[in-house]
């Protein structure tokens, strides 16, 4: 469902900064893959390339069988993208936000789909409240509903639990598990080890723009001899000479 090979991206702002350096991994349908790394590791840049927001300098990436460079429009139809911020329009209501994006995705019978999502995420009580007046948890619910308004086969979430309280974060993690059960592909980035341990079928550890290892949690443990994911991460970074 997601196939990434030798992806590279350098920013010139104005000095060159290598954000992503030969990244490669893959995700299958019904699989949750975690991109695990500290701040500045290249997670967001990788996800932005997959969401067609940025162009890679080298390498290739395909989402749902569509190349991110050659067929960006098809890629965008296939993904639900949730950025690190909630990305909501402050002066639109929750319902308007969902309607707007349903229109952009040309969802057939958009009104019914919006109603269904509002029921699923319990948005009804604040459906007509402007987004700038919602709590963080409410905003995140609207944001997730917006991301899946067109029922995409691939979900790309960039640090989705960032800034959320424990209860809202748990709701989100439960939602990701639900999507996996529905056969969707989920790629999400995080630097929280416990989230990765709980959710991920496979984990790609990224540091300074490079993938240090990609395997199942058990595979990573076996490779490093550590049981705790945090120790696994530290050992991989140290063995990479960093």
């Amino acid at each position: 469902m997601i196939e990434v090979r030798g992806l590279g991206k350098t920013f010139h702002r104005p000095d060159p900064i290598v954000a992503v350096d030969g990244v490669g991994f893959h995700c299958e349908p019904g699989e949750v893959v975690g991109l695990l790394g500290p701040n500045g590791a290249g997670k967001t840049t990788t996800l932005r390339i997959l969401a067609t927001l940025l162009s890679p300098d080298v390498g290739s990436a395909a989402v749902a069988g569509h190349d991110v460079v050659e067929e960006p429009d098809q890629v965008r139809r296939s993904i639900g993208y949730l950025s690190a911020s909630t990305g909501l329009y402050p002066r639109l209501t929750a319902r308007e936000t969902l309607t707007y994006f349903a229109e952009l995705h040309q969802v057939p019978d958009a009104g019914r789909r919006v109603d269904a999502l509002m029921e699923r995420f319990e948005i009804g009580p604040f459906a007509h409240v402007r987004c700038d007046r919602l709590s963080t948890g409410m905003k995140q619910k609207v944001s997730i509903a917006r991301a899946i308004v067109h029922d995409p086969p691939v979900l790309i979430f960039d640090e989705p639990t960032l800034g959320l309280d424990v209860l809202v974060a748990q709701t989100l993690l439960a939602f990701i598990e639900e999507r996996r059960a529905a056969g969707r592909t989920v790629l999400f980035s995080t630097h929280v080890m416990r989230e990765a341990e709980r959710l991920c079928d496979r984990i790609a550890i990224i540091h300074k723009g490079r993938i240090l290892a990609e395997d199942t949690l058990d595979g990573l443990r076996a490779r490093t001899g550590e049981t705790d994911l945090e120790q696994v991460f530290v050992q991989l970074v140290e063995s990479a000479g960093e």
């Binding site: 932005r48 969401a51 067609t52 927001l53 429009d73 965008r76 139809r77 993904i79 993208y81 950025s83 690190a84 911020s85 909630t86 990305g87 909501l88 329009y89 402050p90 994006f101 952009l104 995705h105 040309q106 917006r146």
Partner: peptide, 14 residues
Amino acid sequence: ERGTLETLLSAPVE
């Protein structure tokens, strides 16, 4: 700043 541009550009519009 609000992140809505990123969201908008990930939608299937030119």
